[in-house]
Write a protein that binds this DNA or RNA. Structure first.
Lengths: 146, 146
DNA sequence: TACTAAAACTACTAAAATAGTAGTAATTAA
DNA sequence: TTAATTACTACTATTTTAGTAGTTTTAGTA
């Protein structure tokens, strides 16, 4: 039960865009460098994010990506959902008819619950939250020694 | 982010043992038939459960498996933990040194939280709970038409 | 207009994980 | 002694993961 690099890199990509929200296009080269992720791989990962309209792209020179919504309005669930595809934790939760034991199965109920708990957790965390955490962690309150 | 059949089958195996708790050895053939799972595959899955002392085995004719503890005392976390191996949701949560960005990374904190939420959810569900659900679902209160 | 930097698209690939199967050996109750 | 059962070892096909590689399109700018 592993979270793919795809999802994790995708979240970090989106975090970079959130950190630069309001500053125009950010190109993937920059993100790849900051986050230490293969540029080519990133350029694959961003495609579904664009298709899902979580980011807006601009091609050509000085092109790049921007968030299509404010960081407060993008949850990690939005991102992970797009990048994990339609994969559910367990197939029978998404599609009851995929298992003929569904009607008598009690474990299905548990996996459904677990799916909900995961979704709820991811839904309550937004990019804005990550930005706050980032600032706390990497930009501690500055003291000026004069 | 998928739960393996290994874990899911393992839980169903344990549920079968819980349903038959107190009735002596249950052999895998029976479980395989009831749960519609390959006998050979089940016999692989049960090995780590035995090694983790969640079940006790008896070899030979009339052999089989029994729960080593009462159903109330076995949570789904116990089972899934054993069957997923030491795989964490995300490697860096289990082992901070696995990623050199750990000290500056804020997504790690989120994955750690998600891991905890998953663990907590699985920890609160015991085999006894599954047995209750099973009885409710498959043995509705009987009415006698005389 | 030509150049350059960027996204977009298409195809391929090595490695690992998943979900099993197959066959044999050891054990034990009857 | 036999039959039933667990235990052990090895193998395998398929899918997923985590990328790489190369080309094409687009758009700003000198």
């Amino acid at each position: 039960m592993r979270l793919s690099t795809r999802s994790r890199y995708g979240v970090r990509l989106m975090l970079e865009l959130a950190l630069n929200y309001g500053r125009g296009n950010i190109d993937l080269k920059e993100v790849a460098k900051n986050e230490d992720i293969s540029l080519k791989y990133l350029s694959q990962i961003v495609i579904p994010l664009r298709q899902a309209r979580l980011v807006i792209s601009q091609r050509g020179s000085r092109g790049g990506y921007t968030l299509s919504r404010r960081p407060e309005e993008v949850s990690l669930k939005d991102i992970v959902q797009v990048l994990e595809g339609d994969l559910a934790l367990v197939e029978c939760v998404r599609d009851g008819s995929s298992c003929r034991r569904a009607s008598i199965c009690v474990t299905q109920e548990i996996w459904a619950k677990l799916s909900r708990v995961i979704d709820d957790t991811l839904m309550t965390v937004t990019l804005a939250d990550l930005v706050s955490r980032y600032n706390e962690k990497n930009c501690p309150a500055q003291t000026y020694d004069i």
